[in-house]
């Protein structure tokens, strides 16, 4: 009490460190984890590292095993040769890679409008229990084994779609990709075998297999379109389609592109359905309606039996090319999706 009364009219400043003479620094917060937590973190991160190692091993093993074959013919010839005859040291992936991409493109052309429409239907039109049922149906579609799709394509779709393929090639044969060599529309007994086992039929089956993944990615991004903008569009007098075009589609653009890329990745890697349907040829065939096509995955499934060391190495090289292609497509897809996601959240 006495000290205060003595200096009653003098303002004392607390002796904080002056600016400049400030040597104070934030206290280092040291987190001491208990033993159970340390063990938990160690075990779980070990799990993560093991998974990472497995995934990296896939690439490493393929590369190591492919080197022998690629070195034997040289990378340029490997990429430009159409034949596949490792026994005579004359092989390349030009034909199979083109076939893979063509089948995937046909699948995308069919699957893109289908999945775009389905995802918009699920998010914008269907409501309540119907909506949930549709989501389940699309998920179920993803769970159906590829061998079932392949059998269906082989035994059902092929017979039923040949008429359409014939019609397409008769009327649009002047477009090069729809042309069929040896087809004669004037022939009263047309040779249906010309139109079977084609890129087109394989692409149709693969389209069904990639619809679910594309639909679910698009559905997710469409359902993120902010409710405020939706109602704003309605308040300005937009119809439902007007609202979809001006709000939902622009907001979901990233999801559409990313989902399409993911679907492309799946289509490139599809094996058994293509293996069952196509009749393999080793020449670049741009006529998608014509019998004869090929894909990297089908080539591997077809030729793995001749397990001579060098032919196996050649197959590994083909597998490596497929692996690199799908990884590029997938990384691009996940980057696009990730970017669109963060963007949508900040704008919402």
């Amino acid at each position: 009490m006495t000290a205060i009364s003595e200096t009653a009219d003098v303002t004392t400043r607390p002796d904080y460190p002056e600016a400049g003479a400030d040597t104070a620094s934030p206290r280092l917060i040291k987190q001491v984890r208990e033993r159970a937590d340390r063990t938990f973190r160690l075990v779980s991160s070990t799990g993560g590292v093991i998974v990472l190692a497995i995934m990296c091993l896939v690439g490493i093993f393929l590369t190591v095993n492919a080197v022998q074959a690629i070195a034997a013919v040289g990378p340029v010839e490997f990429l430009t040769t159409q034949e596949w005859s490792p026994e005579t040291n004359h092989f390349g992936i030009a034909a199979v890679l083109t076939g893979t991409v063509l089948i995937a493109l046909v699948a995308l052309v069919v699957a893109l409008p289908l999945s775009l429409g389905t995802s918009l239907f699920i998010t914008e039109v269907a409501r309540g229990g119907f909506q949930r049922t549709l989501v389940s149906i699309v998920d179920l579609m993803a769970a159906v084994p590829s061998v079932v799709y392949g059998l269906w394509g082989l035994a059902f779709l092929q017979n039923n779609v040949i008429g359409f393929a014939k019609w397409l090639s008769t009327w649009f044969g002047w477009i090069p990709i729809f042309a069929v060599d040896g087809a004669d529309p004037a022939n009263p007994l047309p040779n249906n075998a010309l139109y079977g086992s084609s890129t087109f039929i394989a692409g149709l089956v693969v389209a069904l297999m990639i619809v679910p993944i594309m639909t679910s990615m698009m559905r997710e991004s469409f359902s993120r379109a902010p409710i405020g903008e939706r109602e704003g569009a309605y308040a300005l007098g937009a119809t439902r389609w007007g609202m979809i075009r001006s709000v939902v589609l622009p907001f979901g653009k990233g999801g559409v592109i990313g989902g399409t890329m993911l679907g492309l990745g799946r289509a490139l890697g599809e094996t058994i359905a293509i293996y069952l349907i196509i009749s393999p040829i080793f020449a670049i065939n741009f006529h998608i309606l014509q019998k004869g096509s090929n894909s990297v995955a089908a080539l591997i499934a077809l030729r793995y039996g001749e397990s001579n060391g060098f032919t196996m190495s050649a197959l590994m090289a083909a597998g490596l090319a497929l692996f690199i292609l799908t990884m590029i497509v997938n990384f691009t897809a996940s980057t696009i999706i990730g970017r669109s996601r963060s963007g949508a959240e900040s704008e919402a």
């Binding site: 998974v51 393929l62 190591v64 490139l268 890697g269 094996t271 597998g319 990884m327």
Partner: peptide
Amino acid sequence: VEAMTALPSVVAGLFIYA
């Protein structure tokens, strides 16, 4: 892991084969 969800199944077979 996200990139690997679309690993072509035949490539996984080749990897285990090797």
